[in-house]
């Protein structure tokens, strides 16, 4: 008789490619780091404080809610940390601490947990948080007054705010390269365009975000802004100005690509991204808000379930009706 070992019995497949939600989230946070570090260098300790508090409170809210709702505490997958980090990056460095705490509450609990937790949120949680806090305490999100005590060696004006109030003649005050390299007034993580682009490209190469969405979003921005710009250059700013200011790049690479609120099929992804870019520019140029990224993202999140129904025919489903043999 052979001594009988106990073997592991389970179902196929017996292999896995080794990927996990945790790995995905760590990569997203790593990709966010260049832009965040630049913001911390630019705005100093207050910015570091905001980012740390945002990540910590987001994780704490998730743990607390999981505990209350008797769900497994999944803090170790960094899902809440990513939400907190993205939320923190969209705040001005001088935001009061209690706005951060309330904002992460709204993001994590209202934006995700009450819908059923990870994977069930219809909207990007961080965007929900920023939308609600920025509407509630509008003055705190005015980047010009928030950063009034800083001394900058570049034009110390919020580009989109200035564009809204003074028209496109102010565009000449900002050089594109300076905008791209972080020479602008704005949120902690949104000013360093190059860093965001590099982070986004890293995630695209690693396959953690879907390039179709980002590319379509950027294309939507450029195309829509360009159409506005050629119709009346005296009223509307150039496409590149729109691309490198406000939350645009953050939206293209990190907000619109949030997994559970974005589509997965090719054509829907392109529509979704392009719609996002289109709506952003529409709100900026015609609407009352200086930056429309947040609302554009929420709008495309809303149409996601509908457009994601456009999908290729499944295997064996006839392509033309006459091929159908029943």
């Amino acid at each position: 008789m052979v001594k009988q070992n106990k073997f592991t019995v389970s179902h196929a497949p017996f292999w896995h490619d080794g990927d996990s939600i945790k790995a995905m989230n760590i990569n997203i946070m790593a990709a966010l780091l260049p832009a965040t570090l630049f913001g911390i260098v630019q705005f100093g300790m207050p910015a570091l404080g905001v980012i740390c508090l945002s990540i910590a409170s987001a994780m704490a809210w998730e743990a607390l809610f999981s505990f209350i709702s008797k769900r497994p505490i999944i803090i170790h997958d960094y899902n809440a940390a990513v939400i907190g980090m993205v939320f923190g990056m969209m705040l001005p460095a001088t935001i009061p601490w209690w706005v951060v705490i309330i904002g992460t509450f709204v993001s994590v609990i209202v934006g995700q947990q009450i819908f059923g937790g990870i994977g069930s949120n219809p909207f990007n949680p961080a965007v929900i948080g920023i939308a609600i806090t920025s509407l509630s305490w509008k003055s705190l999100f005015d980047f010009d007054s928030a950063l009034v005590n800083y001394q900058f060696d570049f034009t110390a004006l919020d580009p989109l705010g200035a564009l809204k109030h003074q028209g496109p003649q102010i565009v000449d005050m900002f050089s594109l390269s300076s905008l791209l390299m972080g020479g602008q007034v704005g949120a902690i993580g949104s000013i360093f365009g190059l860093g965001i682009i590099l982070g986004g490209i890293y995630l695209i190469i690693r396959g953690y975000i879907r390039w179709e969405i980002s590319v379509a979003y950027v294309a939507g921005i450029i195309l829509t802004a360009w159409i506005f710009n050629i119709t009346d250059p005296s009223k509307y700013a150039s496409p590149m100005f729109h691309l490198f200011t406000g939350y645009t790049l953050l939206g293209a690479f990190f907000l619109a690509t949030e997994t559970s609120s974005s589509p997965v099929n090719l054509i829907p992804m392109l529509i979704y991204g392009a719609m996002g870019g289109f709506m952003t520019i529409l709100i900026r140029n015609i609407g009352v808000y200086p930056d429309g990224t947040i609302y554009a993202i929420l709008l495309i999140n809303l149409i996601n379930p509908l457009i994601d129904k456009i999908r290729p025919k499944a295997f064996g489903k006839c392509k033309r009706s006459k091929q159908c043999v029943k």
Binding site: V2, T8, S10, A12, P13, W15
Partner: peptide
């Protein structure tokens, strides 16, 4: 102990509990 014995391939096979 705790190894897995797979009859068939790694993607479609079945695991058995006994030698």
């Amino acid at each position: 102990e705790k190894d897995r014995i797979i009859i068939g391939g790694p993607l479609r096979g079945v695991a058995t509990y006994t030698l």
